[in-house]
């Protein structure tokens, strides 16, 4: 699904878009967690088609995405990055959005629309 369509479905608005072309890119995978170690347990092979959804609007969610080569983060429950962390997101060339929906609802909608769980590169069982 095109990112633009996914964002519309979950009512997400941009905080910063580094690369507007991502809006027309197909995204297939999502990781949803407030535990960064959970996200770090996932090494995706399709990071440029993976979204990280989290309620943790801090530098560590940005750093975690950076380590995983994920460049699109959606913060749930209207969470927003502080000015300092937004500066960090800009420096990291991230695309960051915020949705008013709670995590359960946001990922439920994306799951219904065909998004798959982001998995470890060596784990074909998921």
């Amino acid at each position: 699904m095109k990112l633009q369509s996914a964002l519309k479905l979950i009512q997400a608005k941009p905080m910063y878009i580094y690369d507007p072309a991502i809006l027309w890119r197909d995204y297939t995978y999502a990781a949803a967690t407030d535990l960064m170690s959970d996200a770090l347990a996932m090494i995706c092979t399709n990071c440029n088609r993976t979204i990280l959804l989290t309620g943790l609007a801090n530098a560590q969610s940005l750093r975690t995405a950076e380590m995983l080569d994920i460049t699109t983060i959606i913060y749930v429950r209207n969470k927003r990055l502080s000015d300092d962390n937004l500066e960090l997101a800009i420096e990291m060339e991230m695309n960051v959005f915020t949705t008013p929906l709670p995590m359960f609802e946001a990922i439920g909608i994306l799951y219904r629309e065909g998004f798959k769980t982001a998995t470890r590169h060596d784990d074909s069982s998921l």
Binding site: L35, S37, A41, L56, T64
Partner: peptide, 16 residues
């Protein structure tokens, strides 16, 4: 509160 302390750190390190 930073999103860590889930008890997965060393396991993640070893796996990778």
């Amino acid at each position: 509160a930073m999103g860590f302390g889930a008890g997965l750190g060393l396991t993640n390190i070893q796996k990778n």
